[in-house]
């Protein structure tokens, strides 16, 4: 298993936020980026279910559409949430390693 690959248990919202932390992207680009960086394939329904919830939470914002495709950008609130989530994951990963090496 590749690092950060949790199959269908991966958190789609977190993956999207992490993808957008690398720059603005539209739906298909987010999907490709996530697949390339984490090996997780987000289905179109899951992707847009998560995008709509992230928009509602104010973690991402839609930019004006470019040729039917609408890019999304990570907001400050979204970046802050991503930092907290990654910090929690980091703690969890460290704890996991400690227990394995104990």
């Amino acid at each position: 298993m590749e690092p950060f690959e949790f199959g269908r248990f991966s958190n789609p919202a977190l993956l999207i936020l992490a993808s957008l932390a690398g720059g603005e992207k539209h739906g298909y680009a987010i999907m490709e980026d996530i697949e390339a960086t984490s090996g997780v394939h987000l289905g179109p329904g899951t992707l847009y279910g998560a995008i709509s919830r992230l928009e509602q939470a104010g973690f991402i914002t839609a930019l004006p559409a470019e040729d039917r495709r609408r890019p999304y950008r990570l907001t400050d609130q979204g970046a802050s949430f991503l930092r907290q989530s990654l910090a929690s994951l980091k703690k969890f990963v460290s704890l996991g390693y400690e227990r394995l090496e104990a």
Binding site: G43, Y48, R68, R69
Partner: peptide, 28 residues
């Protein structure tokens, strides 16, 4: 979302699992 969603669907090949995922997304 329809316009951007349709644009995304046109860009790549959809597997049977993707179709199921879209059906679940609609239910959601």
């Amino acid at each position: 979302y329809a316009e951007e969603f349709a644009a995304m669907l046109e860009q790549g090949m959809l597997s049977p699992l993707d179709v199921v995922d879209i059906l679940l997304g609609a239910c959601d």
